[in-house]
Design a binder for these strands. Structure first.
Lengths: 177, 177
DNA sequence: GAAATTATGTCAGCCATATTGACATATTTT
DNA sequence: AAAATATGTCAATATGGCTGACATAATTTC
């Protein structure tokens, strides 16, 4: 491991300016590469990142409402509209009328959509696994903590709720833990 | 600390699917909030994220060439063009003819530009510091390792070079470590 | 039962930021 | 002198956000 990648001063507990800036920049570079894998796959389908998000989150919580998806993505109805329509037209997503509330259009992935979701997730999962494995120790646990604490305090509850719910769905639908 | 935020299975060393997906999603949510602070400041200036990147990297390596900036940002000359022109016109960046090569237009921040750079960095630095502090242990060192290993292997050298060079510049120009 | 609210969809236009291709100028290298 | 390099600029196109307005169907409230 190169020296540059190890923080230089952890003595006092508070991060030095140098180390803090290095983390900011590393996050920028890491995130850029992190999204580059799915980007390439998406371009083969004529899709963009917006499509990825929809496919991912719908696949993780099948039957979610349009409004739930909007709240999660924090975009406008109009922005979602185009991508969702396209995904439906091309057969990756389908809608089902809500049973208890027939105004709702519950969202589901088709088999084709689920296939795409997994294909997009694979390189990201591999990247995370590799990075965690190469970092040794309790890397995963600590990484999770740090990312969680980087979320705005007022958003943490909804993020936690999401992760919790999606994990429960994953269990019952056979994603082996 | 809530149970949900701690990885559930670290026994074997290999991350479970559940934990891996949770990390993918946490990275998405964390990055979104991470960029939201500068976004808000930028909008007050009529700037966007592209301006942020230019101001940040030029400020970290004053005198860099346009080509170096293009390589770092991995965007086209035309994309950079508008943003750079705007920053120059509004007095945040200025250019100086290269001494050894007079074709080059070396990039520097004005005092106003440096002020903006620091203002944009502050909330991100605070967020990182808080997250690391709240995560305990060797969080910073491990976080740095993980982010570094999330960068594509073929890009690691340039990322390491950048961090190294920028750190050296920071030292000499008085950013206290 | 009428009125208000909610969930969803759609039209139109605007903005920021990315792209490609083409072309121009000045300077350096061969 | 010719080729390559560093930079700048014009034009057209795409993606994915945004706002505002309006429409329909279903549910909730009074």
């Amino acid at each position: 491991m190169a020296d540059i990648i190890s923080a230089q001063d952890l003595s006092g507990g508070r991060l030095s300016d140098q180390d803090t800036v290095a983390l900011i920049e590393l996050l920028f570079f890491a995130y850029r590469d992190f999204v580059s894998d799915p980007d390439e796959i998406l371009s083969q389908f004529g899709f963009g990142r917006a499509h990825h998000r929809v496919v991912h989150f719908v696949g993780r919580d099948p039957g979610m409402t349009v409004q739930q998806l909007l709240d999660l993505l924090r975009i406008t109805k109009q922005s979602l509209g185009r991508v969702l329509k396209e995904l439906i037209d091309k057969g990756y997503v389908f809608q089902k009328e809500g049973e208890s509330d027939r105004r709702q259009r519950l969202l589901y992935l088709t088999a084709k959509g689920e296939e795409l979701r997994l294909r997009l997730m694979l390189p990201q999962a591999e990247r995370i696994r590799r990075a965690v494995a190469q970092s040794g120790g309790d890397a995963a646990q600590l990484y999770r903590k740090i990312l969680y604490h980087m979320v705005n305090p007022e958003n943490r509850e909804s993020v936690r709720d999401w992760i919790e719910r999606a994990a429960a769905i994953g269990e019952e639908s056979g994603e082996h833990g």
